[in-house]
Design a binder for these strands. Structure first.
Lengths: 339, 339
DNA sequence: CAGAATATTGCAAGCGCTTGCATTACGATT
DNA sequence: AATCGTAATGCAAGCGCTTGCAATATTCTG
């Protein structure tokens, strides 16, 4: 027996009131008399009624769906933040429509379009810079949007994140403090990835200060994968002078390089120090543990959800918030071998 | 200037045709003459038109949204599979509405309801057993549903996964082959988690075979977190006889225990062997690498998407598929110390 | 070139729900 | 008891899109 799901009218009929009353009973129970409310509730339960999503979306111009497109779900970099984000949404009966961009701006645009065409009331995006057409699209559609994993004070957009540039500087300073003079950087691919670019810029801005007397042996960009990290290590370690420290753009790269270094017989940190970025779970399991930058993922997810929700409910009410990172010292960074 | 987004009628007006033709041009381009199609396309581009989601959903009774409820997004266990799942959906312009259950059946039910009330055309769920009311709800709503991370031949439901029980047996056998006689199991919490329960049952079904002359020192259930794993290790290692091998219910537990073991001065695998389950990225970075069960995550995600999509487009056409696991040997499992 | 077949397009009736406005019911006030 | 204020409900007009059917235009066929 293929019965169509019950509609508002069916319930109305069953309860002996008008459809409008049913609707009110569901959305604004206070505006309905106690007695009828009970009767209606009984009818709803009896029929197993659930509001039709399309009808409701059409009438209210609201879906209670928020879209998020993150660079990747495969590595756990974004998982924690998204989980936190989703927790807050769930509490508000808002759900999360998810897309991933694979770090490709074009693909990101495509995903954004898809999510929006699927009714997203708002968007969560990672990073701050994106192609003009993407920005235009978001603006023209008037979709409240919030960016995470970065922070910009000088922008009219909404951010809940941290300063990648400064964090990059922090690691670089720490490495110099340890006395390293020959340093290499293995960064993520900066094209289309402002976080990677900012981190890298922060690092070089410190390393290149002549007064420190350090030398940036090489800056190498590669994809965030263990395999690419291993290859990057091979390239970088073959430079001359050989770097005594390698700053990685994130923990995936740092972990991959550490593993490769050990496989090649290098001791970390005695022969070469390696630092990471993000402090994903992996960082503490790599041996030696990764000295890295801890990113306030959970907090970021929570705040992002709150602010984005606020912005959606009342445009203009969302606030940007800057979070702080701090360095977690583990064993992968040490002083360079004596000369 | 707050302009409302353009509607079908606006485009129709602009292109000088009826709304119906625009609709066809978007959904079934072949049924529209080349010339008008171009004209319409131009109008669409000029106005920046995008179909309204609610209207479309209402008219077609289709949202092209699939819901997925996974136990957790925080650890990377499910990330790879979901990523793969999403890739296939994206290709079909279907999007993913996501919820997480935190391994709690009640919360899972709640999430399922939310996702469905948000219009999900189909559901992806993890595991096979769930409370009666959840099943009933799914059935009464006629929501095509597919279960992953497990496989049951004897069911009328759809599965794309593997046999946790058999995989559990495999690890247990391997451990016995190495000569271990005193074995402990640290499992995930089985209540409400059939995968954990199946794995555990598989393990004990082998360990308890008298002929092997082995003894299950202890079976301990705990949450999937590094901290809980560390505590579990403390408990288990204090048993008498002290186990020479610990079988973990997943890699998070195995990694956490390995780390704890080393912190306490135990050598892995010389003092105690540890095996994992899932082969998440972490497994190869733990030192020693985790001997574990590799789960075909990506394949699972892809096939799940294909079958669920098939089932949605034509009920009855989705197929269950059983995938195979295999053991990855790394250093964490070795023979027990001599007597 | 007439007649038939086919390709294009338009008409209009929904899809299920919300909501401003109008109506009715019910007490409370004087 | 007449008047008034408020609470509860109903009416009906959309919200934007799809689609069966009908009307018209175009292309074939012999």
């Amino acid at each position: 027996m293929i019965t169509k799901p019950p509609t508002l009218d069916d319930v109305a009929q069953a309860a002996g009131v008008s459809a409008a009353t049913i609707s009110r009973c569901i959305n604004t129970p206070d505006r309905v008399a106690e007695s009828t409310r009970l009767r209606i509730q009984a009818a709803i339960d009896a029929l197993g009624y659930t509001p039709n999503f399309g009808g409701r979306a059409l009438a209210t111009r609201r879906t209670n769906i928020i879209g998020a497109v993150i660079p990747s779900m495969a590595n756990s970099v974004f998982a924690g933040g998204i989980q936190a984000f989703q927790e807050v949404l769930a509490r508000e009966k808002v759900t999360l429509l998810i897309g991933s961009s694979n770090y490709d701006p074009d693909y990101e645009f495509e995903q954004i379009q898809t999510l929006i065409s699927h009714g997203a009331d708002g968007m969560l995006l990672v990073g701050s810079k994106r192609p003009e057409r993407t920005q235009q699209f978001l603006i023209s559609r008037r979709i409240p949007t919030l960016n995470i994993w970065c922070y910009r004070a000088d922008s009219d957009q909404l951010y809940v994140g941290f300063d990648n540039h400064r964090a990059g500087q922090d690691v670089a300073k720490l490495v110099l403090d340890y006395g390293h003079k020959a340093v290499a950087i293995v960064s993520g691919i900066c094209d289309g990835n402002d976080r990677a670019a900012d981190r890298l810029a922060g690092m070089t801005s410190v390393l290149d200060v002549p007064a420190y007397g350090a030398q940036t042996v090489m800056v190498h960009q590669t994809k965030y994968s263990f395999d690419h990290a291993a290859k990057a290590f091979d390239t970088v370690i073959a430079q001359s002078p050989r770097p005594t420290a390698i700053l990685a753009g994130n923990d995936v790269l740092a972990a991959g390089m550490t593993q490769r270094a050990k496989a090649l017989g290098f001791s970390v940190p005695d022969d070469v120090s390696i630092t990471g970025f993000d402090d994903i779970a992996l960082a503490q399991f790599v041996d030696p543990g990764l000295t890295t930058v801890r990113v306030p993922q959970v907090q970021m997810g929570h705040r992002a959800a709150e602010e984005l929700l606020a912005e959606i409910r009342e445009p203009g009410s969302g606030r940007s918030v800057e979070l702080l990172t701090h360095i977690i010292k583990r064993g992968s960074l040490g002083p360079p071998a004596q000369g």
